[in-house]
């Protein structure tokens, strides 16, 4: 019995300490504050480094909150499918989608609309990049010599990392990627595609031109290891899509206000974080070519 006394004291002490710590965490946890039902939530496809996305979209959230006058929250997701699912399940009402994820989301949510795209997204393009050991050099023609190499796409659901490159591969080499290449991988996102090709784990990859520029600026690319070998023809890409039923929740005209506010982003730090020159109006029909391509390569039934 005597031996137990200090033990019990210690137990009590650690108990109260834990209790205090837990209460503190409960009170301080930003997520535990009840979500007000009038919070307008948006997300973005995780196409590059998450910390970069957070920086960018937290700025956007502050900007939108200021202009719209309703609480705005950005939630990061881990996959393209999760972004589409959240949009579909009305857990986010606005999203920065790629061409393909936008088409998918809007097909699944009747009444939803593409409202704005980056100026560059009207004629977006991709790069095919290669490790130096392949000996492949930049050319204006499709690099037929990538056949038989080890190739990586980005995410399975990406426009620039999957849909467009697969389309061009099928068009030029007349075979599916699995038949063209020695091995096909999906790196997950563009940042990783660059890194994996740079390390030689994959010989060739397809990457979003904007992410390539961002990484180049950040000094993460060694041009002696990895370089551009081809630039794809232009296609429509990223856009802001909004659910059709937002006016019901936030009042008539809410959708057009969101659109207007997005088009009026002039803050150079926000624009530079995307990086986009400006935002221009977009409509669902702008993305018909993406839908056609997706159907052609059977990514959408």
């Amino acid at each position: 019995m005597i031996n137990n006394v200090p033990k019990i004291n210690l137990l009590k002490k650690s108990f109260s300490f834990l209790m205090l710590a837990l209460i503190w965490f409960v009170l301080s946890s930003p997520l535990s504050t009840a979500k007000a039902s009038d919070t307008f939530v948006f997300t973005a496809i995780p196409d590059e480094d998450e910390s970069r996305l957070r920086q960018r979209f937290n700025k956007v959230a502050i900007y939108l909150e200021e202009k719209l006058g309703v609480p705005i929250k950005y939630i990061p997701v881990k996959s393209y499918a999760a972004a589409v699912a959240a949009f579909r399940n009305d857990q986010v009402q606005l999203a920065w989608f790629g061409g393909l994820s936008g088409v998918r989301a809007r097909t699944l949510v009747p009444g939803s609309q593409a409202i704005a795209q980056g100026f560059e997204d009207q004629a977006f393009f991709n790069y095919f990049i290669a490790h130096y050991s392949t000996g492949l050099k930049r050319s204006n023609k499709f690099p037929m010599k990538i056949a038989g190499k080890i190739f990586t796409f980005g995410s399975k659901g990406s426009t620039s990392g999957r849909l467009i490159p697969e389309f061009h591969i099928r068009k030029n080499l007349k075979k599916s990627p699995n038949d063209v290449f020695k091995k096909v991988g999906y790196s997950g996102n563009h940042t990783r595609t660059i890194q994996l090709v740079q390390s030689g784990a994959y010989q060739v990859g397809a990457v979003n031109s904007k992410v390539w520029e961002n990484e180049m600026k950040a000094g993460k690319i060694d041009p002696s290891k990895v370089s551009i070998i081809w630039k794809t023809p232009p296609y429509p890409n990223y856009q802001w899509s909004i659910r059709g039923d937002v006016d019901k929740h936030w009042g008539a005209g809410f959708k057009s206000r969101v659109k207007e506010i997005l088009l009026n982003i002039k803050d150079p730090t926000i624009l530079a974080s995307f990086p986009r020159k400006s935002f221009v109006p977009a409509s669902n029909s702008d993305y018909q070519p993406i839908l056609d391509v997706a159907k052609a390569i059977k990514l959408i039934d």
Binding site: F15, L22, V26, S32, K35, N89, Q91
Partner: peptide, 15 residues
């Protein structure tokens, strides 16, 4: 004690 507190620590989420 943990079980009582754990639910409060999960954080919020979408409805």
């Amino acid at each position: 004690f943990y079980l009582i507190f754990a639910p409060f620590l999960l954080g919020g989420g979408a409805d």
